[in-house]
Design a protein around this nucleic acid. Sequence first.
DNA 1: GAAAGAAGTTCGGCAGGCCTAATAATATAT
DNA 2: ATATATTATTAGGCCTGCCGAACTTCTTTC
Lengths: 254, 254
Amino acid sequence: MEMAKGLTASLEDYLEAIYHIIAEKEAVRAKDISRRLKVSGASVTGALRSLAEKRLVNYAPYDVITLTAEGGRLAKEVVRRHEVLRDFFVKVLAVEEKAANEVACQMEHIVSKEILERFIQFTEFVEVCPRGGSKWIAGFGYYCDHTGAMENCERCLQLALEEARKAKREGGHEMARSAKLSELKPGQRCRVVKLSARGETSKRLAQMGVTPGAVVEVERVAPLGDPIDIKVKGYHLSLRKEEALGVEAEVIEP
Amino acid sequence: MEMAKGLTASLEDYLEAIYHIIAEKEAVRAKDISRRLKVSGASVTGALRSLAEKRLVNYAPYDVITLTAEGGRLAKEVVRRHEVLRDFFVKVLAVEEKAANEVACQMEHIVSKEILERFIQFTEFVEVCPRGGSKWIAGFGYYCDHTGAMENCERCLQLALEEARKAKREGGHEMARSAKLSELKPGQRCRVVKLSARGETSKRLAQMGVTPGAVVEVERVAPLGDPIDIKVKGYHLSLRKEEALGVEAEVIEP
DNA sequence: GAAAGAAGTTCGGCAGGCCTAATAATATAT
DNA sequence: ATATATTATTAGGCCTGCCGAACTTCTTTC
């Protein structure tokens, strides 16, 4: 009667917790999980057995706990959902981190692939669209704090207007400055314009979501610029420099 | 051990279903509930007993089912949460109705008061802010369909810019035309400017959320303009004409 | 007004998830 | 090396929420 897909919300939480503990310390002990999820040790044992049965964790009584390949994949997916939702709440709805995490932790079990996609696109759109952008979000924050304060909308519009004009002056159309992905700095965001890599690499990039039009955020760049950590569509990826070289992008100014 | 507040997600669903069935037909039979929620009759009986114990429904075996005052209040609150979330998904994230309802039905049990508030404010803000508005949302729809299509952003901005200028020309500042709430037509939205009603009425209005700054949508106006159905902060209200007369508002153009 | 049919109820069962208390294994200290 | 503390595991229970099957109570229909 084992259904192949479809973990329960609770098991997803355990998987997620294990993933995070692994990221923080070497070994995962049941105690860590029970502390993190605020459940008794007995419950952890039970969940672990369930997960082991589904071949998502390597588990033997009194032994260290690790994720199987499949388990790691699933855990990463859950974490991704969590982060996408949390980002939406924090960046778009201006909810404080703690509350955002709480609600994301519940929602991560119920949003469908399609709707998650929408959240990603929307958060992206709001941050990237010239009519949106960080100033607009700040406006929303203001709107929330001062019930329905729209008085300074005039000023806000004026600013957006001036910015748009300026952008126009600088180049005829609002073309952002173009660059290789490998030249960007942490924190910068860009839109992929073209993949100029060869077959194998470009295929791998495309599979990961790095396609023309996609918004990419650079998270970390190692000292010599070799592994470059980026975030695309909620996925954290690590690119080799030669891969990043093959990605033409245009910088999105904040 | 009875905890006064905090219904389970499942019981909220039953309450919601009963509320909707009451709105549709005269009597509520267990059968209707089981059909609507896709559960067996036995489950309905169980839930009904639970709800009766909590004094939320009037229930006696083989008898008709009704909501108590408290039950009605709670049911309305659940429905409100559902509608607020569904509206957000439909109006802002451009999710199709069916999928929006499904996710709203899950989320309604997990979003906190504060975050629900945010969803309301955000949906409002997006629809009302001169930098947002329906055209901007349409832009998001376009963005979703054509992965990351920002090419026509220039045109979009141009339009917003012109509109802003036009608004400026017509009156020095972007003051919308002012009116009494009672003069609006169904579908129109407005922002409350001032309550000029006397003590008792204004107090009731304020309690319901009709306060300066609030966005009000007119839903229905009865033939002689007497009960006027409006929506404020997700609440459906019915106002007497004399109450609506005491509300000064400025129309928000779509 | 009796019989058929529909609707509602009770009963026992099952799965998920959590708990406490008791027990077993491992790690640490003397 | 034994005693102690920590950590895991088992065992047994509780609660929610669902189900099917059997039984009861309406409601209709003839």
